[in-house]
Nucleic acid binder design. Sequence first.
DNA 1: CTTGAAAATGAATTGAGTGTCATTTATATT
DNA 2: AATATAAATGACACTCAATTCATTTTCAAG
Lengths: 204, 204
Amino acid sequence: MPKVTDEHKEFRKQQILLAAMEVFKRKGYEKATLKDIVEQAGMSRGWIYLYFTDKKQIFEALLTYLDAEQEQKFAELISSYDTVFSVLSRFFEELRLEMTSEETLYPAVYEFWITSWRDETVREFFAKRYERTVAMFSDLFHKGLDSGEFTATIPVDEITKMMMSSIDGMMVHSLAFGLARIDMKKQLDQLLRRLMELLPQSSI
Amino acid sequence: MPKVTDEHKEFRKQQILLAAMEVFKRKGYEKATLKDIVEQAGMSRGWIYLYFTDKKQIFEALLTYLDAEQEQKFAELISSYDTVFSVLSRFFEELRLEMTSEETLYPAVYEFWITSWRDETVREFFAKRYERTVAMFSDLFHKGLDSGEFTATIPVDEITKMMMSSIDGMMVHSLAFGLARIDMKKQLDQLLRRLMELLPQSSI
DNA sequence: CTTGAAAATGAATTGAGTGTCATTTATATT
DNA sequence: AATATAAATGACACTCAATTCATTTTCAAG
């Protein structure tokens, strides 16, 4: 079977990532095992080592893939820009839907994130991810400045970081206390309102 | 050795909790094993099962103990009340010091919290903890109303919950991105400022 | 159709942690 | 001092995931 192709290898990796995603959605990060993933993929035990070295590597690959998708989506959102408010509003709504879905990967992401904080390379990975997200929102706020939606310069980074810790706090709360106890919609609405108050808007 | 005493049993449990705390501080929650704890306590393998059934039970006992301490502390802070601002300010400062200390248990707490979200009893445990904290801060804000520091009724629960998700978000960020990247002091100061803006103060 | 090399398999090994229990140790009681 | 009994010990068995690797399968090239 000398099918040297890189494409084939790529295809196999995709297969693994797909199977892994199912498992991580179902069991979270810590409880998921390579065995689970191999079984989900319907393949034999040792097989997975031909493509990945461990669970961490698989999760990082999966996350990289999904992040690219999400950034793409956000870029589209920005390009269909109307107001900062409308973009944020839609972004928050999508976030909420994803989080409250039965099928979400978010719990596993937060688990991975927080259990891996002692791992230098993972910390680096998430730090980069954080910087990218900050940059993403900075773009948005700058667009608000350029379009004249905001009248004065605003501390873009400061506001973005505040927003991000609020969001992550909510996410963690809704995860850890159960969705029933946390009214994500209400909290996100409040956050959005507070954000808009912080931004010195033109009076149309 | 018929030392029937409950006190003795209590003493042993304390010993275990002390050893466990050391281990959890050093290794976090997931990576810590009963073996580590037994070794830290300088005792033999099977010994720990005479007092606790598993790691989860130990961590819950430890957390219950520490929470009681913290609530005690907060009660003292409130009783030495000057203004809401001063209480919050001191509370934030203590939180920050604890979080940035080398010796902190916080990382393990967040780890336990987030990896155990599928466990109904743990979720219940943390939900109660959340309600207690909300109640704690509600007390504080009500005191601000009674003393005339605030002029109008304020949505106490709403504000408290917003504050708590902000704080937990910051904590998780500083944990996961590394303390070097997150300026806890700055972010907490900003949060405090924003909180005070939300509270309609008497113009003294 | 044969062959050779890469891909895939899965039985077996490794390794780490959990949990049990027969035995030993310590000491309060008599 | 002898005895009874609870506390403590630590070897051992168990579980389960991770990992290896000899063997088998597959398929493109000759």
